[in-house]
Nucleic acid binder design. Structure first.
Length: 382
DNA sequence: TACAACCCTGTATG
DNA sequence: ACATACAGGGTTG
């Protein structure tokens, strides 16, 4: 069965878990290179990681990056099997979804996911990405450089809590979300018990590096969702995004305007006179999808969501089919950073695309990997 | 339960 | 050209 891949894959750099990763994908492999800070004992989230002379590379014997990537892209799940399951239980999915492969739910850091999706309300992907990038640049600990470009990890709750934070974030263009971020940071840092957010993790799907913590993950999905609603700027949709992508709850189904329209159009959820739908209706939609799609309902939702986007409706044209391609080891990939014209990543987690030096080739699996958002002309209806 | 208001940016429409 | 409207994976009071 041929893979369907983007015709061109560019290397992407991102700060994650206290290191810089350079990622590149081809039909068979995800290639990665790890750049560690000179000083590797620092904890991500603490603001005092110092960079020393040149970033050093760690050797694979003690490198947990492959494990990190398998977790980050949720590679333990078999996409083909799940698509088959969803298709058998749902004729609408069977009709619309098969072309949209390569979509995966990521497992990102819970705190970063939370703040990232607070930024997402009534907002567009491009600006969300810029906002997350600004949070890292202005408040996050420096990990190191790739060329001239500095890479910062995502700032912890303490760093986003100060009194000046809200006004500064407003100046940085965060709008009304500035208050939500500062207030949520204060709540998590001071009002909630230590480790509160992590304790909402799905025990069957623990976060990276937290496998052995017995204190973690006593909650159920519904409890986790309910708890998140106590934060500022977190409604049912954002709470489900955090449950799904930050806390390992595969059954979480974020219901936004698009999914609500899909539910009404394709799943017999009655048309309603009101502009906004109620919390009861929100829960009802999620419950219905959980019933027909099962414990990875959030993934199925994401596939249908993507299939429903106009900007992806010509996906089959934008792709090329490849039967088999040999793995290439590229010594250098030069690329001129072009912030304005580079398609923005779909995930608010990704930071920047820059030049890559050397690529260490390692197999980490044959999953089709992430999608990137194409900057196609958007055809507005009505 | 039902809105308007909320920050800001890009796109469509007149 | 320039104004106005509206969407953009919502939440709050």
């Amino acid at each position: 069965m041929p893979y369907v891949v983007e015709a061109e894959t560019r290397a992407r750099n991102l700060a994650i878990h206290g290191r810089i990763l350079s990622l590149k994908q081809d039909p068979d492999y995800l290639h990665y290179k790890t750049t560690w800070p000179g000083f590797t004992t620092g904890v991500p989230g603490s603001p005092d990681i110092k960079e020393e002379e040149k970033p050093t590379e760690q050797h694979s014997s003690s490198d947990d990056t492959e494990q990190l990537l398998r977790h980050y892209f949720s590679l333990k799940h078999n996409a083909a099997e799940l698509y088959e399951l969803w298709s058998q239980n749902d004729l609408n999915f069977r009709k619309k979804a098969p072309k949209f492969t390569g979509i995966r739910i990521m497992s990102q850091d819970a705190w970063e996911t939370l703040i990232g999706f607070i930024c997402s309300s009534n907002n567009n992907i491009s600006r969300i990405s810029q906002m997350v990038h600004k949070l890292c640049r202005y408040y996050g600990p420096l990990i190191g450089h790739i060329g001239e470009e500095p890479f910062h990890d995502f700032p912890g709750p303490q760093a986003l809590m100060g009194k000046g934070v809200e006004s500064q974030l407003r100046e940085l263009g965060f709008g009304y979300r500035a208050k939500y971020i500062a207030e949520t940071a204060r709540l998590v840092s001071e009002e909630k018990p230590r480790g509160w957010l992590e304790s909402l993790t799905n025990p069957k799907n623990p976060g990276f590096g937290a496998e052995e913590d017995p204190e973690l993950g006593r909650a159920t999905y519904k409890e986790a969702h309910e708890q998140l609603l106590t934060l500022s700027g977190v409604g049912p949709k954002v709470a489900d995004c955090v449950c799904l992508m930050g806390l390992g709850w595969g059954e979480a189904v974020p219901v936004d305007t698009h999914v609500w329209q899909i539910a009404q159009r394709d799943y017999k959820f009655g048309k309603v006179k009101t502009k906004t739908f109620s919390k009861a209706m929100y829960d009802s939609v999620g419950d219905h999808f959980r019933k027909i799609w099962g414990d990875q309902a959030g993934w199925a939702q994401s596939v249908l969501f993507t299939a429903n986007l106009k900007s992806f409706s010509d996906r089959s044209i934008a792709k090329v089919e490849v039967d088999e391609v040999k793995v290439k080891i590229e010594d250098t990939v030069s690329e001129t950073p072009d912030v304005l014209k580079t398609p923005k990543p779909r995930s608010p987690r990704k930071r920047q695309v820059t030049a890559l030096e050397t690529v260490k080739v390692e197999e980490i699996g044959t999953a089709s990997g992430t999608i990137t958002r194409s900057k196609r002309r958007r055809l507005q209806s009505t």
